[in-house]
Design a protein around this nucleic acid. Structure first.
Length: 498
RNA sequence: GCGUCGGUAGCAAAGCUUGGUUACGCGAUGGACUGCAAAUCCAUUUUACGGGGGUUCAAAUCUCUCCCGGCGCUCCA
């Protein structure tokens, strides 16, 4: 099947092609670690995790590079306020980032280069740009001269060079920068006293914001690569600046074959921002919701469309995720019941119109449709629709009174199906152990277990005696503790649901 | 102002490139199952596609126009 991806530059879905057969070079702009990671980061890196996973599922050998902008004005300001080194600020926020991403099942990239480790590459790139007269040295740093390559202006955003000049002309003088033209941007900023700095031919200083990505992609991938991603806000000016720098430096065009940008997280219809007071860090969201619930909520929209975030969105995600995990749990239980015996190998499903054969045929078809959805520009919403349909089929079959061998074989097949699509492709499944045992690392569960166990024994006795009012009273008591009981064929099961 | 993306049922959100069948989920209601629940399944809510023209046998989908909204044009995922 052909993979179609939306390319920002061409503004449409195109057939995905790679520079080198079977290999994908993917660069995604990472965070500036000046504060704990927020929901916008969650959305971005979950989106590209999906892309990463699906490319690998399709058999590509993917090299995924994601940078850290570990020195910048905001980091320096915070370090100064707190009286610590800027590296400490960067370090602690990078740790926060990784722990949030790991919790959400975001697979690690292959490389996480940092600005502070890429200084040499940046300097040599700036030197070439100066040599080719695409850059000049100003009072306070080195600047890229946009007018030196006007044909590259607005490639991603359609901005018109004349209009931008007219619209922002007044700002040039006021900034006090050594720019000749307001459209120009810094490649190297000379250090003010006390700022972190590195030696360069133009004086001690640090890199401008955009140049790092050009230097890093050149270092890891060479002059061209397959996918460049990031949040949609990075299109202008960041990604357009990268095109200027890289293409003018190497003389090779295009730098990137597929530009991919994820949509924003809004809150109550407005952009999430600190100044509006509607700001959510990932840690905030994970106070009341499991990481996979957040992941599920994010995948419930297409990656390019905006998400309007709310408590309700997480509540919906929670229900959908519970439905998925329950189905996985049930299938695992059926199969796990005999795992110590010989694994029953399911015969190749024969398509039919009745019973097991029919359901197996349905699942096979749903799997194909799920893959088609992912091939269509990573349509996770559509894929989830297929997974929901599969859950229904699995659930029906597991409750249909199948006989032992068929039941076990079907459970095994269902586990494999879910692991392939919901697990491997979408990253929505917990480990088998977790799914079977429930959340063992929830401290509240451990705390409640003795009390709940006691009440359940009492309730079982009351039910045995058909004393329904007493049994219901105990259930109410459990509910007051935030515990919901389900009576199943294998006895009562309880969950924390408040 | 310029650029760009969007407006789909009570909520939420796919489908639009390649025009003709159901999205899916939540909520609500009814039913099956249950001592009652929960979970699960079945059904209804469903004459859904911002307004108005055009093309067509046929339009959510193509086209024109108008209205409304997000985002970008300064740092941002």
């Amino acid at each position: 099947m052909v993979l179609r991806v939306h390319d920002t530059r061409r503004r449409k879905k195109v057939d995905f092609t790679t520079i080198e057969p079977g290999k994908v070079r993917m660069y995604v702009c990472g965070i500036t670690p000046y504060s704990p990671s927020h929901l916008g980061h969650a959305r971005c890196y979950v989106s590209f995790d999906i892309i990463h996973r699906w490319l690998e599922a399709k058999g590509y050998d993917v090299t995924y590079v994601q940078n850290f902008t570990d020195v910048d004005d905001k980091i320096i300001n915070i370090a100064n306020e707190e009286g610590i080194d800027f590296t400490e600020v960067a370090e602690r926020n990078i740790e926060d980032y990784f722990s949030a991403m790991d919790a959400m099942n975001v697979l690690r990239a292959d490389h996480y280069p940092r600005v502070t480790e890429t200084i040499d590459g940046i300097i040599s790139m700036v030197e070439i740009l100066l040599e080719k007269e695409h850059a000049y040295v100003g009072d306070d740093g080195v600047y890229f001269h946009v007018e030196s390559a006007p044909e590259k202006y607005g490639l991603l955003t359609g901005q018109n060079i004349e209009a931008v000049r007219a619209g922002a002309g007044g700002r040039v003088g006021g900034t006090g920068s050594g720019k000749r033209d307001h459209k120009d941007f810094a490649l190297w900023k000379l250090a003010k006293p006390g700022e972190p700095q590195w030696e360069s031919p133009w004086g001690a200083g640090r890199p401008g914001w955009h140049i790092e990505c050009s230097a890093m992609s050149l270092q890891f991938f060479g002059e061209q690569f397959d996918i460049h991603g990031g949040g949609e806000d990075l299109q202008f000016p960041h990604h357009e600046a990268e095109i200027f720098q890289s293409e003018c430096c190497t003389g090779t065009s295009p730098l990137v074959h597929h530009w991919m940008h994820n949509g924003f997280v809004n809150v109550d219809g407005e952009k999430m921002s600190k100044s509006l007071g509607n700001f959510w860090t990932i840690t905030d969201a994970l106070q009341n919701f499991e990481p996979l619930v957040l992941r599920h909520a994010l995948l419930n929209a297409h990656y390019r469309n905006p998400i309007d975030f709310s408590e309700q969105l997480l509540e919906d995600g929670k229900r959908s995720q519970a439905r998925l995990e329950d189905a996985y749990h049930d299938a695992l239980t059926v199969w796990d019941g005999v795992k110590h015996n010989q694994i029953v190998k399911l015969p190749r499903p024969e398509l039919g119109t009745e019973g097991l054969a029919h359901t197996l045929g349905m699942l096979e078809k749903l799997g194909e449709e799920c893959a088609m959805a992912m091939d269509d520009d990573f349509n996770t919403r559509e894929a989830l629709a297929k997974i929901n349909a599969a859950i229904r089929e699995i659930s029906k079959m597991l409750n249909s009174g199948l006989q032992d061998d068929d039941r076990v074989a079907f459970g095994y097949y269902a586990v494999e199906w879910l692991e392939e699509f919901a697990g491997k492709a979408l990253g929505l499944l917990p480990t088998r152990e977790k799914a079977l045992m429930g959340p063992p690392d929830d401290p509240r569960r451990t705390e409640l277990a003795p009390k709940v166990g006691e009440l359940l024994i009492k309730r079982a006795a009351a039910r045995e005696a058909k004393d329904w009012p007493a049994a219901d009273a105990i259930r109410d008591e459990l509910a007051a503790l935030g515990v919901t009981v389900q009576d199943t064929a294998d006895g009562p099961v309880w969950k924390i649901t408040d």
